[in-house]
Structure formats: structure tokens, C-alpha cells
């Protein structure tokens, strides 16, 4: 039972990260129809920016997190402007190639600036908490709680503010939104800003318990991509549920059945879901 609870907690912790990273990606994919495969690499860059403020400039953890959010947000805006906007109207596969180009660029950039050696952000909350027979690091609890808060804030933003509703309007009907006078380019920039900023939050949450390295974004990026498809492109609840689902299935499948084939369970489950519901859990129409 203790083992089960422990695995459950591990699954939720990872699910939280997956959920917020996938959330940022689903906005971009659903609203702009851009298969941004470089999203995981933005996450990596966010981690390094936070590292830079904490270690090189001696800022506090939370200040660095905020700064990292803003800076990475602008990186996202710039990326949209020079990489993806010129590709409007071309087949999505071209944007996919451009995204691969962008991710190669970002990874090499990190390699050139920070070198291949793993780097570590000092853990701001190293305390160990024991509850119900399971052990938790405080920082991991923060990841779970922080992710939940972020999800609620984003939801409120999308539903309750004018800016948020414009984003949703573009998602539902791009032409219609343009006719009502919405500046679609501005919405694109904004969506990229939000999407990158959430990636920076995820990276800042996780990097104190892990190690920063230029290649760290690749796997997470691919998983986020898969979650977005699983949840249904552009669906916010789909991304959240998909994230937690993947985290849990990895922890339980990996812990109980076979660690070697951990990813096989996750991907197998996805294949199964999509063959039953070909547009994802919350998908609306044919992709």
C-alpha cells in the first residue's frame, strides 16, 4: 500500500509537469495550428535562464522564476515572428521541419553558451516531509501545488478576461475572429508568450530537483506533443487530463510491471485511445 501511494505521488508529480508543459503547447497547436516541436527546448532554455539569474546574478528563487517567465515569453514571441509567421499558409509539415530547425538551434545554443556539463540550481526547499508512510521532498510538493495554481489561473484568464476570450475566439474560428476586428497576429504573439512563459515555470519548478543539460528538453517535448494529441488538439482540459494520465501510467507501469518498457505502456495507451477515438479524448472535429 505504501509503495502504491508512493508511486501515485510520483505519478502525480510528473503528471503536473506534463500537464503545464502540454497546456502551453496545446494553446499554440490548437489556436495557431503550429506543430511546435521545439516546445521542450523552450522549456530547457527556461531552466537555464533561471539558473543564470540564481547562480550568476545571485537573485532569489522566486524573482528568478518571474524573470525567466518574462524573458522566455519574449523568446517565444520572437520565435513565432521569425520562424513560424513566414510559414503561414504552407503545409503543416513545413512548420514541423522549421520547428526541428529551431530545436536544433536552441540545443546547440545552450551547448555553446553553457557547455555540455550538467548544472544544478540549489534546491530552495530541500525539506523532507513524511505523510501516510510516503516520503516527499518539499520542492516536489511545490511542483504539484504550483501546477494546480497555474492551471486555475490560466483557466480564469482564458474564460474571464477580454484578452483570454479573444484567444479562444481565434481558436474557434480564425476567419470569423478576423472579421470582428481581432488582430490575429497580435493574438499569435500573445499565445506564444503565454505558452513559453508556462514552459519557463515548469522548468524553474523542476530544475532544483534535477540537472540542467542542453538535451533535457527533447524527451519532454515529445511527450508534451503526444499528450496534446491524446487530449485533442487545442483542448485545455484534454492537455491537463492527458498530462496526469501519462504521469500516472508511467509511474505505475514503470514501478509495477517493467521499467524497461515504461514508455511502451504510455505510447501503447495513446495508440489505443486514438484508435477508439481518432481525434483525441476531447477532440472536436477531424484534424
Amino acid at each position: 500500500m505504501e509503495l502504491f501511494l508512493q508511486q501515485l505521488f510520483n505519478g502525480i508529480m510528473f503528471g503536473s509537469t506534463y500537464a503545464i508543459v502540454a497546456l502551453g503547447l496545446t494553446l499554440v497547436m490548437g489556436i495557431l495550428h503550429i506543430p511546435n516541436f521545439a516546445h521542450g527546448h523552450l522549456y530547457m532554455l527556461g531552466g537555464y535562464i533561471t539558473y543564470f539569474f540564481i547562480t550568476n546574478l545571485g537573485f532569489g528563487y522566486w524573482y528568478s522564476l518571474l524573470l525567466s517567465m518574462v524573458i522566455l515569453g519574449f523568446v517565444g514571441v520572437v520565435m513565432e515572428r521569425i520562424v513560424f509567421r513566414p510559414l503561414t499558409g504552407q503545409p503543416p509539415i513545413n512548420a514541423f521541419i522549421a520547428a526541428i530547425g529551431a530545436l536544433i538551434f536552441l540545443e546547440s545554443l545552450a551547448l555553446v553558451i553553457w557547455g555540455p556539463q550538467g548544472m544544478r540550481i540549489p534546491n530552495p526547499h530541500p525539506q523532507i516531509i513524511k505523510m501516510f508512510g510516503i516520503t516527499m521532498e518539499a520542492q516536489r510538493l511545490l511542483v504539484v501545488g504550483g501546477a494546480a495554481v497555474l492551471i486555475v489561473l490560466l483557466h480564469l484568464f482564458l474564460k474571464k478576461t477580454t484578452t483570454g476570450t479573444t484567444i479562444e475566439a481565434v481558436a474557434q474560428n480564425r476567419e470569423g475572429a478576423m472579421l470582428t476586428g481581432i488582430n490575429v497576429n497580435r493574438v499569435s504573439s500573445m499565445t506564444f508568450f503565454i505558452s513559453s512563459a508556462t514552459a519557463a515555470v515548469a522548468a524553474s519548478f523542476l530544475s532544483p530537483i534535477f540537472i540542467l543539460s542542453p538535451a533535457m528538453g527533447a524527451v519532454l517535448g515529445m511527450k508534451a506533443f503526444i499528450i496534446v494529441i491524446l487530449g485533442g488538439m487545442g483542448s485545455v482540459p484534454g492537455a491537463i487530463l492527458g498530462g496526469y494520465f501519462l504521469g500516472l501510467i508511467e509511474a505505475l507501469g514503470g514501478g509495477y510491471i517493467s521499467a524497461e518498457y515504461k514508455d511502451v505502456f504510455a505510447f501503447g495507451a495513446l495508440i489505443l485511445v486514438l484508435s477508439i477515438k481518432p481525434t483525441g479524448l476531447f477532440g472536436k472535429q477531424e484534424g
Binding site: 509503495l3 508511486q7 530537483i209 540537472i211 509495477y256
Partner: peptide
């Protein structure tokens, strides 16, 4: 060890068996 950074799933399962010692390792940082 090259692509993952969280090993709590594997470790929880291993520790549940109450081992005397563990053989671990791969790249240093991980």
C-alpha cells in the same frame, strides 16, 4: 540515465524489497 531525471518510480519499487545495498550508475550527474 541519458534521457530521464526522475527515478522515484524505479527506486520506490526497488526499495520496497528492502535491499542491503544497491548497484546504480550511468553518466555521473544523473
Amino acid at each position: 540515465y541519458y534521457t530521464e531525471t526522475d527515478f522515484s518510480a524505479q527506486l520506490s519499487a526497488a526499495l520496497a524489497k528492502k535491499p542491503d545495498f544497491m548497484l546504480i550508475g550511468g553518466p555521473s550527474a544523473t
